[in-house]
Simulated scan of single mutants.
Amino acid sequence: MAKEQENRRPGTPIVIAMKGHPGTGKSTLARALSSALKIPLLDKDDVRDCTLALQQRHQPHDGLLNDLAYDVVFAVAATQLSNGLSVVVDSPLSRRARLDRLVRLASSHGARVAVVECRPGDEAEWRRRLEARRDAGSWHKPATWRDLERLLEAYGGCTEYDLGGVPRLVVDTTSGGDGGAAAAEEFVAAVRGGRWGGCAAREE
């Protein structure tokens, strides 16, 4: 109960920035954190899903609509932070520039940033989850393992970057249990309370 009260008490807002490739369990963990901490969840895919009509009518480069989705999510995050609310931002966070922008945004509102990165240790389970969600998945997400491989090839390794001192917890969401939710809650509480001394951690 003490930990739960600490997580929910008023104080310095925090941006919990999810990070990881499609199908790694980011959204499941993001929802768990949002529910447990009673803070807004901002999902970039929710915005991207709404751009289907633009995609069909104008057929812009995919990057433009993806940038738009980030712009909207970050703008909404800024509004929540200005009201003193913490937020969970669910996105791949695949480029350092996205993180830098989020850090600047948080800093301008006196908030902290904590990255929760999902890295499944069991590739077979990762693949099963990715392809099992095919019917319910968004139109812009990879629907097959080969789609994901093409996406990762296009990234060219840019997803592996130094976080520049931003606190990070790396979670193996295929290891069973609660998918890392308890560890993530403890991590967030430590960052929010200014008690996090390291730059990275791993929950096996």
Score class of each variant (00 low, 15 high):
residue 202 R to I: 10
residue 41 L to T: 05
residue 17 A to L: 11
residue 175 S to D: 11
residue 76 V to W: 08
residue 49 D to I: 12
residue 58 H to A: 12
residue 46 D to N: 02
residue 148 L to V: 13
residue 93 L to Q: 09
residue 145 W to E: 05
residue 204 E to W: 14
residue 26 K to R: 08
residue 81 L to R: 05
residue 199 C to S: 12
residue 11 G to S: 14
residue 149 E to W: 04
residue 182 A to Q: 14
residue 4 E to A: 14
residue 117 E to K: 09
residue 68 L to G: 01
residue 93 L to D: 03
residue 62 D to K: 03
residue 186 E to D: 13
residue 168 R to S: 05
residue 76 V to Q: 07
residue 173 T to W: 11
residue 56 Q to W: 01
residue 156 G to V: 04
residue 203 E to C: 11
residue 7 N to F: 13
residue 108 S to C: 00
residue 19 K to P: 03
residue 148 L to A: 15
residue 195 R to G: 04
residue 78 A to I: 06
residue 191 V to H: 13
residue 181 A to T: 12
residue 173 T to P: 12
residue 136 A to H: 11
residue 3 K to M: 15
residue 46 D to E: 09
residue 194 G to D: 02
residue 201 A to E: 00
residue 115 V to S: 03
residue 150 R to S: 10
residue 117 E to T: 12
residue 3 K to W: 15
residue 4 E to W: 15
residue 124 A to S: 10
residue 115 V to A: 03
residue 185 E to W: 07
residue 105 L to R: 13
residue 40 P to Y: 10
residue 85 L to I: 02
residue 160 E to K: 08
residue 113 V to P: 11
residue 166 V to R: 09
residue 2 A to M: 14
residue 71 D to A: 10
residue 151 L to S: 14
residue 109 H to V: 00
residue 109 H to L: 07
residue 92 P to F: 02
residue 85 L to P: 05
residue 135 D to V: 08
residue 116 V to Y: 04
residue 165 G to M: 01
residue 21 H to A: 10
residue 26 K to C: 01
residue 133 R to K: 10
residue 185 E to F: 07
residue 31 R to N: 09
residue 98 R to N: 11
residue 68 L to P: 01
residue 130 L to I: 08
residue 132 A to Y: 05
residue 173 T to N: 07
residue 29 L to M: 03
residue 204 E to L: 15
residue 112 R to T: 12
residue 48 R to E: 10
residue 181 A to Q: 11
residue 134 R to Y: 01
residue 144 T to W: 07
residue 96 R to S: 10
residue 7 N to D: 12
residue 117 E to C: 03
residue 139 W to A: 00
residue 71 D to Q: 06
residue 29 L to F: 04
residue 5 Q to H: 15
residue 134 R to F: 01
residue 63 G to M: 01
residue 113 V to K: 02
residue 59 Q to E: 13
residue 26 K to P: 04
residue 26 K to T: 03
residue 97 A to C: 12
residue 60 P to S: 02
residue 17 A to K: 07
residue 6 E to D: 14
residue 117 E to N: 06
residue 82 S to F: 13
residue 55 Q to V: 06
residue 25 G to V: 01
residue 4 E to Q: 15
residue 106 A to I: 03
residue 138 S to I: 02
residue 137 G to W: 03
residue 9 R to Q: 12
residue 90 D to H: 06
residue 117 E to M: 00
residue 202 R to W: 12
residue 163 L to A: 02
residue 22 P to M: 08
residue 144 T to D: 08
residue 183 A to W: 11
residue 193 G to P: 13
residue 179 G to A: 06
residue 90 D to F: 06
residue 21 H to R: 13
residue 168 R to H: 00
residue 98 R to D: 08
residue 168 R to I: 03
residue 139 W to Y: 12
